[in-house]
Simulated assay, not measured.
Amino acid sequence: MTDPALPTEAPVLVRASGGLGHLTLNRPRAMNALNLGMIGDLAAALDDWEHDPDIDTVLLDGAGDRGLCAGGDVRALYEQIRSGDPDGAGRFFRAEYALNARIAEYPKPIVVFADGVTMGGGIGLAGHAALRIVTERSRLAMPETRIGFTPDVGGTWLLAHAPGRLGEFLALTGTTMDAADAIAVGLADHFVPSADLPALRDALRSGAGTAQERVARFLTADMGDGTPAVSALERSRDWIDDAFSAATVADIVDALRARPEAAASDTAALLGELSPTGLAVTLDAVRRARDLPDLRAALAQEYGLVMWFATSQPDLVEGIRAQLVDKDRAPRWQPGTIEELAPDAAASALAYRPRIALWS
Results as ranks from 00 to 15, higher is better:
313 Q>R: 03
298 A>K: 02
293 P>T: 11
294 D>G: 08
313 Q>M: 06
303 Y>M: 09
282 T>G: 09
283 L>A: 08
297 A>E: 03
282 T>R: 05
311 T>L: 06
282 T>V: 04
290 R>T: 07
299 L>E: 05
285 A>K: 02
296 R>E: 13
301 Q>H: 14
313 Q>E: 07
304 G>Y: 04
282 T>W: 08
310 A>I: 11
320 I>V: 15
311 T>G: 07
317 V>G: 00
298 A>C: 13
293 P>K: 12
317 V>R: 00
292 L>C: 02
313 Q>Y: 06
315 D>I: 10
288 R>M: 07
317 V>H: 01
286 V>L: 08
321 R>K: 08
290 R>I: 06
301 Q>T: 04
313 Q>P: 02
314 P>Q: 13
308 W>Q: 00
290 R>E: 06
295 L>F: 06
316 L>C: 15
277 T>V: 15
315 D>R: 05
303 Y>Q: 03
297 A>F: 08
287 R>F: 05
312 S>V: 11
317 V>K: 01
294 D>L: 03
289 A>Y: 07
282 T>K: 05
287 R>A: 02
277 T>S: 15
284 D>P: 00
321 R>E: 04
320 I>E: 01
286 V>T: 08
278 G>P: 02
316 L>W: 14
287 R>M: 02
320 I>Q: 01
318 E>H: 10
307 M>D: 11
297 A>P: 02
288 R>W: 11
307 M>A: 12
298 A>I: 02
276 P>A: 12
281 V>A: 10
306 V>H: 12
289 A>E: 06
306 V>A: 14
280 A>W: 06
296 R>C: 11
286 V>D: 00
310 A>P: 09
291 D>G: 15
319 G>V: 09
285 A>V: 01
289 A>S: 11
303 Y>W: 13
303 Y>K: 11
287 R>L: 05
290 R>G: 09
294 D>C: 09
276 P>V: 07
276 P>E: 14
312 S>C: 10
297 A>S: 12
316 L>E: 14
304 G>P: 11
314 P>M: 14
306 V>Q: 12
282 T>F: 06
308 W>Y: 15
281 V>N: 04
315 D>S: 09
313 Q>G: 04
304 G>N: 12
306 V>E: 13
306 V>I: 12
318 E>F: 07
300 A>E: 07
278 G>D: 10
311 T>H: 04
294 D>Q: 10
286 V>I: 13
299 L>K: 05
294 D>R: 03
276 P>T: 09
297 A>K: 06
299 L>M: 13
320 I>W: 04
288 R>P: 00
291 D>S: 15
309 F>K: 05
279 L>H: 10
310 A>K: 03
284 D>A: 11
279 L>G: 07
279 L>M: 14
298 A>E: 00
282 T>N: 11
275 S>C: 15
297 A>W: 06
284 D>I: 00
294 D>N: 12
299 L>D: 02
280 A>M: 11
310 A>W: 03
305 L>A: 05
305 L>I: 01
303 Y>A: 06
302 E>C: 11
289 A>D: 03
302 E>I: 01
285 A>W: 01
314 P>T: 14
315 D>N: 13
286 V>M: 09
